[in-house]
Design a protein around this nucleic acid. Sequence first.
DNA 1: CAATCTTGCTTCATCGATTGAGCAACGGTG
DNA 2: CACCGTTGCTCAATCGATGAAGCAAGATTG
Lengths: 340, 340
Amino acid sequence: MIQQKPTKKTTIYDLAELAGTSASAVSAVLNGNWKKRRISIKLAEKITRIAEEQGYAVNMQASLLRREKSKIVGMIVPKYDNRYFGSIVETFEIMARERGLFPIITCTLRDPELELEAARTMLSYQVEWLISTGATDPDRITDICLAAGAHSLNLDLPGSKAPSIISDNFAGARELTQRTLRNCQREIGSLSPLLFVGGRASDHNTAERVRGFRRAHEDLGISVDENHILTCGYAPEKAVGALQALADTEHTLPRGMFVNSTISLEGVMRWIKASHHFDGKPPIIGCFDWDPFVALLGDNIEMVRQDVGGMLQSVFKIIDDGHATSPLIEVPPIFDTKIG
Amino acid sequence: MIQQKPTKKTTIYDLAELAGTSASAVSAVLNGNWKKRRISIKLAEKITRIAEEQGYAVNMQASLLRREKSKIVGMIVPKYDNRYFGSIVETFEIMARERGLFPIITCTLRDPELELEAARTMLSYQVEWLISTGATDPDRITDICLAAGAHSLNLDLPGSKAPSIISDNFAGARELTQRTLRNCQREIGSLSPLLFVGGRASDHNTAERVRGFRRAHEDLGISVDENHILTCGYAPEKAVGALQALADTEHTLPRGMFVNSTISLEGVMRWIKASHHFDGKPPIIGCFDWDPFVALLGDNIEMVRQDVGGMLQSVFKIIDDGHATSPLIEVPPIFDTKIG
DNA sequence: CAATCTTGCTTCATCGATTGAGCAACGGTG
DNA sequence: CACCGTTGCTCAATCGATGAAGCAAGATTG
């Protein structure tokens, strides 16, 4: 018979009838504990064969309703438009599957309302753990998780009510700033302060990176110009706007720059190309994030790669153990050994 | 405090008891059809308030078990490591949510076994539609979808058993090849054939792009060297290997290249940088895919952007209508007007 | 040969939300 | 006052899978 339309779903009752047995035997066979339930091998094989013939797939909704654990782990992520978050999601899925967990992921477009909405939806699906990645208000998410009986974790940006796994932003920014200052010195002959571009002044990561940025300048005895800290937001257009505004008030911009993410870097490079401000004397950039094409094509760009593998190891350590031993885990980012 | 343990989940029975009413009234109020069920506004408000106080979240497993439609749409995608798939996933989520559907996405790492496994898992979760993006064997996925009562669609790579939405690879490749040939001519003074790098000879998209590549050469009266069609796979290392092998047998490589994806481009650029083959005379590249940093930094690289928005419009047109009017939809890719 | 154990199943209650059917109370009508 | 319609709820069956409890038949023991 030719089935154009999808057929009706097969249930264990259908299989039971076909096999001349009970639904409970079918269930026991198909979820693997038929030995414990003392089903004969003969019947088990018969049921398995019929299930395959019928293309049977268990109804997880029914199954999960009955079981006590859902084995579903959720993750919310701001965007899929850069390698950092892409890599986080990919690694999360792989590590979840290794453990027999079912990962569900959703992106929230950096919209705080959508974050909460997405969290609520995931809770409806009975996630056991919800990982908030780069969330604007992780504590509110933790609140609703606790109320709904789920565990929560923060990744990339910390919160105060759930364990947080983040990059070591201070140390990373300090090292990156030092390297960029040196790269810049090698290029222009003298040591001079950098421009800081991107990120939100209100978020923990940006604050820590600014602190590392300042410290690196201190280390080398250079003073930072307060007007040169442009925490204008992450979007490329924000960086373009901030650079243009600064160029409008100051004659020349610093040659060296610390850029807070690849997203902001996109804007920075767009502006550099469009404004012709740096024509002939390309800026020396350090970027707190990694992208393969920038690494290959960007001649004067030093990048730090956040240790996604290490961070997710920590996440799953907590999930595996069922609890965290520390409220904040800072994972050092990775520098390529080669410089500039 | 970090170590709070999640509370027990609240059910409509708990709420009913708190409100001094029945579970069925609670259900009616919370899923919005309390007017139809003639619940008084007074009771509706009371129930709503209590539900909010308790942080109640409906149990989707139970809800979906009872309803006939799940409103879940699934998508499988090979990787999250490039802008094309990232953009597909992001757009898919947005468009699904606009329609009140719940999107679930999983990546299959280009592993055919994992594709099937992921499809089966999604079917267990009662997806109504399953979109196979860039799948190696989309027809097998369609088979198991039909057996499980779900609809299926193919995106990016076509299949023969379900409607397919793909880029117009032939026309796109033809145009891109022509542009690259011209860019190359402008650079080196004479018209000469390009090298084709990346993709699998067995997949539809690569075959069509090779056809467009050949046609563009024909159009300009140039003959293609068969040894210069390197359909070596998508992974960067494959491109590196293929270029090295070719460079080992031939003295000089063509100056112009057609690269089949940003993934392959990564390998191509790695080899170019490492081998020093093109030092001083950078290759002129056309890439069938788009990346913002390549667009900004790659001076001699022309890119085509696949029309993700248009493709997903087509996908959701089919989902909205419940059926497709055509088995294959080819969406023209987008060229930036500016050349070179 | 009765008593007990083992094997191989079946029966039935359950998870939480949904919804058709039904029922009590009240107001309006003739 | 009998009858009917409306309002505002409750009852109970149901979705599909699960697993504790139970039961019948055969095997083993004393």
